[in-house]
């Protein structure tokens, strides 16, 4: 047995691990409607290469959802142009789910849902009424 490792210096902030607390979590909009699942995270100020000291710490700049999931499942790369992002500044709250401060309809990640709703599901009789 080796000696137990020292505790990391404490910080005055809530500490989370990306894979454990952020990845694969449900994202809800301001009204509590499901938007997407967090398939990946975009980290700003983090590039390949030497890390110079005194540089500001990288931050999470966006939640990514959509086509990137196939990359996580089967490998390969998603072209940067096809990343569907939700800016980190839109996140209002984080507990066991992400809650956004905007409505689902205003986000790019829900384009297919909106297209289906207006072109297909909404056009079937009864599709736009509450169930009875």
């Amino acid at each position: 047995m080796t000696d137990p490792l020292p505790q990391a210096p404490s910080v005055d902030a809530r500490v989370v691990d990306a894979r454990l607390h952020l990845l694969d979590r449900q994202v809800l909009d301001v009204e509590g409607d499901p938007v997407a699942t967090v398939d990946d995270l975009e980290i700003a100020d983090l590039q390949y290469g030497e890390r110079l000291p005194d540089r500001p710490a990288p931050t999470i700049s966006a939640l990514i959802s959509g086509p990137i999931l196939t990359t996580r499942l089967f490998g390969g790369r998603t072209p940067p142009g096809r990343l569907q992002k939700i800016g980190w500044d839109l996140v209002a709250d984080l507990d066991i789910v992400f809650t956004l401060e905007v409505k689902s309809e205003s986000l790019e990640v829900t384009w297919f849902e909106r297209w289906l709703a207006s072109r297909v599901i909404g056009r079937i009789p009864g599709g736009d009424h509450d169930p009875e």
Partner: peptide, 12 residues
Amino acid sequence: FGWSWGKFRRPA
């Protein structure tokens, strides 16, 4: 996939 679901919502 994190889609909106539930019968308490209207289908659209």
